[in-house]
């Protein structure tokens, strides 16, 4: 089965609402103005309600926020955009992923962690041309391919993958290709393409395990590194989550000193509580 055939057979995957795909395109467009982005959020009542509910939770840090405009006053445009994206994709990313032995919301939590850490990695890196919202978005959707493949892997295939990983010490990505015919990075990119997401996000997702070959190597490296750091901070759901290789050359290009990585990991731990709040508000 090719990855396109696999995607065409997806029945139960909830696509994000039209407002969320519009939102992701607007947030990742450097030319889009803030008012246009807020208007997309305001027009989606369910998204608005969840966003305001989350804003009023303690961790986010403000209270009695009754409108999107007030949320922006307290938190700023960028924070509101990212909260809206995270909530919007929550519906798609929250289901259990049995093929990878992930319980409900585990994939979403890992996605949120990686999104937060992508921003931290960008801040520490010497990639000044990269955009924080684009990095956050790419981190948020990087593993969406697992959601698709996870619906088609049966228990025997899962066991075959685990046996292969044990025997050959290969990457999960390679085991997926050998047993299913496609890997989750490729499938994720095709799904996002089908949903009409921006090319730079699709490229980052397609290459988040191989940033060196990406047409957007810097963004792919940010997501690649953030994913690895997320795993090291206890966000490592599903089978064989450590069966990955770090591309050291790409990671070195970030210009982050070895000693700073532990500081990054400590900062990443702070994201845990916010992630739990967001998952609870879903």
């Amino acid at each position: 089965m090719t990855s396109k055939e696999l995607i065409s057979r997806v029945r139960n995957l909830k696509a994000p609402s039209p407002s969320v795909t519009k939102l992701i395109t607007a947030v990742t467009d450097p030319e889009a103005d803030n008012e246009k982005i807020l208007e997309i959020i305001r027009r989606d009542a369910a998204l608005c309600a969840k966003l305001l509910s989350l804003c009023n939770r303690a961790t986010v840090g403000v209270s009695s926020v009754a409108s999107i405009d007030r949320a922006v006053m307290y938190l700023g445009h960028r924070a509101v955009h990212r909260l809206a994206l995270s909530i919007g994709f929550g519906a798609a990313l929250a289901p259990a992923v049995p093929g990878y032995a992930m319980n409900q919301t585990e994939l979403w939590r890992h996605s949120l962690h990686t999104a937060f850490i992508s921003q931290l990695v960008l801040e520490k890196s010497n990639f000044p041309d990269q955009d924080a919202s684009v990095s956050y978005t790419a981190g948020l959707v990087h593993d969406i391919g697992k959601l698709v493949i996870g619906q088609f892997i049966d228990p025997s295939q899962q066991q075959t993958i685990l046996e292969l990983l044990n025997r050959d010490q290969c990457e999960l990505l390679e085991a997926e290709r050998r047993i299913i015919g496609v890997d989750h990075a490729e499938v994720g990119a095709l799904l996002l393409e089908k949903w009409g997401l921006p090319k730079i996000i699709i490229e980052a997702v397609a290459n988040h395990h191989n940033p060196a070959i990406s047409p957007s190597p810097q963004l792919s490296t940010i997501v690649h590194t953030a994913d690895l750091i997320a795993h090291q901070t206890g966000s490592c759901p599903g089978i064989a989550s450590f069966a990955v290789r770090a591309n050291e050359e790409a990671v070195n290009a970030l210009g982050i000193h070895e000693s700073e990585f532990e500081a990054l990991i400590i900062s990443a731990l702070d994201a845990h509580q916010l992630v739990e709040e967001m998952a609870a508000a879903a």
Partner: peptide, 14 residues
């Protein structure tokens, strides 16, 4: 103490 397949100093925390 899980470990990645790459044993680099940065990603060798396990």
């Amino acid at each position: 103490g899980a470990q990645f397949l790459t044993r680099s100093p940065i990603f060798n925390i396990g």
